[in-house]
Design a protein around this nucleic acid. Sequence first.
DNA 1: ATCCTATATGAGAATTATTCTTATTTGATA
DNA 2: TATCAAATAAGAATAATTCTCATATAGGAT
Lengths: 141, 141
Amino acid sequence: MNIQQDELRNKLSEAGLKVTPQRVLILEAIYTLNNHPTAENILEYISKSNPNIATGTVYKVLDTLVQKNLIRRVKTDRDVMRYDGITEKHHHLYCNKCDIIEDYNDAELDEYLMGYFKKKKLKGFEIDDIVLQIRGTFHKC
Amino acid sequence: MNIQQDELRNKLSEAGLKVTPQRVLILEAIYTLNNHPTAENILEYISKSNPNIATGTVYKVLDTLVQKNLIRRVKTDRDVMRYDGITEKHHHLYCNKCDIIEDYNDAELDEYLMGYFKKKKLKGFEIDDIVLQIRGTFHKC
DNA sequence: ATCCTATATGAGAATTATTCTTATTTGATA
DNA sequence: TATCAAATAAGAATAATTCTCATATAGGAT
Ligand SMILES: [Mn+2]
Ligand SMILES: [Mn+2]
Ligand SMILES: [Zn+2]
Ligand SMILES: [Zn+2]
């Protein structure tokens, strides 16, 4: 995991952020814990190896990372925030039966949508980004 | 507004819910306050005419209405819940500059997407519903 | 029309997620 | 190695939501 550590450190300093152990740990946790962890998930994971990290620090760092586009917030209809380490365009499958949010990549569809909205301009609105929230149920659930 | 009141009462009893003044008021508030109000928005609106409604009741009723599919929760990346009185399929424009979430209807696109995912089965996942979250900026913002 | 009872509400305490405050520590730069 | 703006720890504070329970009420039964 040391090689990744260097990547993480680079990401942070490229974003103009001081490289602190807490920030590295939090980024690492987000990449390791897939399925769009909550602040609490992250805190819990880190606490195992590093029980002295402060709750407030986790929230503060998460905000900073979002601000610098190193991570993203995930839209949900729950009152707990979830975070996404993948900043490249992708969509989400939301399960009705459990709280898994799975990534869904579809370059073909993205291309279609890009073309579709290039033609069909929405009056009064400049589109930055389109994410599909696909609700449904995993067979395993 | 009395004609609508009857509709609201019908909706409630058709859903198997007792028709209480609070439930009618809350449904009415959601339809009146467009832009996907929060519980607080709803409470504030109702309190003008009905200052004795309890906060807990608003949350309780909102949950009940969601359960019975009379309203929907709206996915956001904020920690306040928002509600949608429109239960028919539609998409959302999220503004980067303000907290407006505007409805977007597009039957043509819906049809395309339905066809697209009918062919392209997602392995292990049964799709119920697809909502586009279109992020961007309103020109006025 | 009145009664009955399961259900809903009001009031406010409790909980949960998140933010804020402040003293202390630390990463990066010179 | 010294400097200092920025970051963290600790825990108090706040905001959103949920819970508890005593009282009220909608709607079916009488
Ligand atoms: Mn994702
Ligand atoms: Mn809507
Ligand atoms: Zn599931
Ligand atoms: Zn706006």
